[in-house]
Amino acid sequence: MSSMLSRRPLGGTGLAVAPLCAGGAPLGSMPQQFGYRTPAERGIATVRAVLDSGINFLDTANIYADGGSERRIGAALAEIGGPPDDFVLATKVDRDAEGNFSGDRVRRSAEESLERLGVDRVPLLHLHDPEHISFEEAMAPGGAVEALFELRAEGIADHIGLAGGPVGLMSRFLREAPFEVLLTHNRWSLLDRSADDLVDEAVERGVAVLNGAVFGGGMLARGPGESGKYAYREADEEILDRARRMHEACERHEVPLAAAALQFSVRDSRIASTIVGTSRPERVAETIRLAEHPVPEELWAELLPLAAPPECWQW
C-alpha cells in the first residue's frame, strides 16, 4: 500500500485517516473562488475516484457551492449504499446567507448537510469560519459552540472540530472549548508560516491538526506564472517573488512545485492529514503521486528559507 494511503490516528478521536484528505470545495461549482466551473457529473465522478483510491477521508462544508458539494458527494455515496465502514466523512456547520450563525442556525446547517449527504450522522463536524461573528457571540449560552457540542451529545456527530482562519482567534477557541480537531488553511505552507505556533499549541492540547490550502489557492500548484493569487486574492510582489524563486529551485531539481508544496505539509509530523481539493477524477491519483514524488534534502534546504516575511502572512 502507498504510504499516502496508510492510516494515521486523528488525535484522540479514535479515528484513523489517510495522510491525504480529499477537499470538497471544488466538487461543487465555485467559479467566483476557483475561477472555473465544475459540472455536476464531473464532481460526482471525482468523488467516485476518491472512494476507489484508498483515501478514506473527505472534507466538505454546508456552504460550499450553496450545498452543491454535499449534494454531489451524497449522489456518489448513494451509488454504493453509503460511506464505507472505515470512511471518515467530515462536514462543517455554516452561517446562512443572511449571516445568521446562531445556535439554531448551527442545528439547521447540520440537518441540511445530513440530508444532502444521505447520512444520519457524520464522524466529524466542524464549526466553520467563526471569525464571521464575535467570539463572545459564538461562545454565549445557546450560541454556535454550545449547539455544536449538543449535536455530538445527540449522536449527530461523533467528533467536533474547529475550522477557520485567523490564528489568534483559533487559539482562543482552543483554550476555551474542548474541540478535538483543528483545521487551519492558507497559513501553513511553503510561503506562509502564520500557523506554526497554533499548530504547536493544538498538538500540546491533544487536538488533531488538519492543514488545508497548501497550494494557496493555486499559486503553489501551477506556479506564479499561471496564478497571481495567494489565498484567493491578488498576491503582493513579495509573495510573487518568493514563489518565483521556489519555482526556479524546484525546476533545478526536477521536482514539481506542487509536490514540494504538498509534502511541506505531509512530512510535518504534527499534521494528521493534509486536505487537497480536487475537481477532476484524474487529479486524485495525481495528488497521490505528487505526495510520493522524491524531494531531495538539498531542495528543502533551498525552499524553507524562502518563506515570505511575517508581514506578508495571513495571520
Rank of each mutant, 00 (worst) to 15 (best):
A213Y: 07
G218E: 12
P178V: 11
E201V: 08
V276M: 12
L191H: 09
S189Q: 12
S227Q: 09
G168W: 01
S273H: 10
E286T: 13
L198S: 08
G165E: 09
P305F: 01
L306E: 02
Y232A: 10
M246C: 05
E201H: 12
R233W: 07
R175D: 15
R187I: 05
P178Q: 02
G212D: 06
A261W: 02
A259I: 01
D196M: 11
D241P: 00
A308S: 09
V167H: 12
V199H: 02
R242K: 10
L182C: 09
W300T: 02
V207H: 07
E226Q: 15
A213R: 09
L190M: 02
A202I: 05
P178H: 02
F179R: 08
A285E: 10
E176D: 13
A260F: 04
E226W: 00
R283D: 13
N211A: 13
E248G: 00
M246L: 04
E204I: 01
E251T: 05
H247C: 03
S189K: 05
P281T: 08
F215Q: 06
E204R: 15
A291D: 07
G217D: 11
H185D: 01
A213D: 13
E201G: 12
F264T: 09
S279H: 14
E176W: 03
A301Q: 08
E282A: 15
P305I: 07
G223Y: 05
V199K: 10
A231T: 04
G223K: 01
N211R: 07
L303V: 09
S171I: 03
V255L: 04
S194M: 01
L262Q: 06
D197C: 00
R242V: 01
S189I: 09
A235P: 04
E298C: 00
A261V: 02
A202C: 04
V207M: 08
R252V: 04
V199L: 15
E237C: 00
D236M: 00
E176H: 12
R270V: 03
T274N: 12
E298L: 03
F173M: 11
G164V: 10
D197Q: 13
R289W: 03
V276L: 09
I271A: 11
V181A: 09
D236V: 05
E254H: 10
F215H: 10
L162M: 11
H247V: 00
L304P: 03
E176G: 01
E238A: 13
L210K: 06
S189V: 01
L191P: 07
A195S: 13
A177N: 06
A291V: 09
E238Y: 00
K229I: 06
D236K: 09
G223R: 03
T184P: 01
L304N: 01
M170W: 05
G228S: 13
E282K: 15
F215D: 05
R175Y: 08
E180G: 09
C250D: 01
L198I: 04
E201A: 13
G217E: 04
L198P: 02
S269G: 07
L262K: 01
G206K: 11
R242E: 00
P166D: 15
L303S: 07
G277N: 11
I271L: 10
A231W: 06
P296R: 05
L303Y: 03
E234R: 14
R187S: 13
W188A: 04
V207F: 08
R267M: 08
